[in-house]
Each structure stands twice: as C-alpha cells, then as structure tokens.
Amino acid sequence: MVRSPFAALVRRDTRLALRLGGGGAVGIAFFVLAVVLIPLGVGRETATLARIAGGVLWVAALLAALLSLDRLFQADYEDGSLDQLMLAPMPLEQVVLAKTIAHWLTTGLPMTLIAPVLGAMLQLPDTALPALVLAMAAGTPALSFIGAIGAAITVGVRRGGLLLSILVLPLYIPTLVFGARVVEHALLGLSTAGVMGLLGGLTLFAAALSPFASALALRINAR
C-alpha cells in the first residue's frame, strides 16, 4: 500500500492526540463539562435552556477548540520535529493543512458527534438536532483553521496560552454568530439553508487562507 506523506502526517498527529495524555479526550471532556455547567448556572427551565442551547454549545465548542490549539504546533516546535517537517520535501503549507485536519479529527469531529446528545440534554427539540449536527460539521473546521493561524503566530512565545486566546477568540466571532444562528433558525422553524451557506462559506474561506498564513508565521518563527 502506498501511503502519501500527507496521509501519514494526518495519521501521526491523530494518533498522538488520541494517545493517553495526548489531550484529545480531555478536550472533549472539557466540552461536555462546560455544557453541563450551564443548566447548573442558569436553571433547568425547559424553555430557557432550549432558547440558549445553540449559543451555549457553540461557545463551549469555541473554548474547547481554543484550549486544544497549543498541541497543534507547540510540542513539535519544542522537540524540533517541526524543523524536520520544514526540511521535508512536502511544502510547509501542506504540513499545516495535514496537522489542522488532524486537529479537527480529534476535536471538531468528536464534538459534532456528541453535540446532539448535549443538545437533547439542553432540551433542544428533536427537530432542531439535525441542523445542530450539520452546523457543527460545517462550522467546527473553521475553528481549527482559524486557530492554526493563531497557534502558528504564538508558537515561539513561552506560556503563550493566554495570548493565543486573546488573538484567536475575536477571529472566532463570525463562526459563533453563524453557527448559533443555524440552531436558532431550526428552533424557530425557519429555513436554515441561507445561514448554513454562510457558515460553510466561512469554513471554506478559512481553509483557503489558513495554510498560507500559518505557514508564513511558522517560517518567521523558525528564522
């Protein structure tokens, strides 16, 4: 079987994240826990919970994606693997793309799969759940792509976690707005196609921009 270097890199990063201590499972646990805290804070009234469910799930997804960004480049930067990857014949933009896809496979994808369960717990009616899953599937890749830019910029900063969040969270605002709005439209029985298009377009745009911007930032950091 011929395995492309691109696929090999995706597999490597996915495995590293899923390994015990790799942080993949912990990120998902954080996502679930953050959502579970909400009813404890705002009360268990069905109508209130259903009304805020979409926003809550998206804010939790944003934070979970943010907190797992440091493993995107940080470890490889510190132990020198990133320098090796930069010397490899594969263009750095492809390396970034592979690593970002692996990041999504271990954060965005599991969050998408678990979102309907959490949505049901937050009293979202069953009719809104398909839209929630679709929105998460279409929107969470943007979180990984946009986050990769921030992670690449701050990779050389010691204890850059807080800095990373203040750089990346403002960039997440369009994803949050469109993602939560899809769920809201579904809840109100409106058509979700328009907003879903905007959300998907945003993801495609981020996917087109991110590998180049991130690779540029990584090259600057490696100088």
Partner: peptide
C-alpha cells in the same frame, strides 16, 4: 508576526462586522 496578525485581523474585522450586522 504582528504584521501577519494585523492582515489576518483586517479580513476578520470585515467578516465580524458583517456577521454582527446579521
């Protein structure tokens, strides 16, 4: 690095403005 951030930021500032209007 901050120049890269500024240019990425200006794109997302426009997107945010549109999203917030929406």
């Amino acid at each position: 690095l901050s120049a890269v951030l500024c240019l990425v930021g200006v794109v997302f500032a426009f997107l945010s403005r549109y999203a917030v209007n929406f």
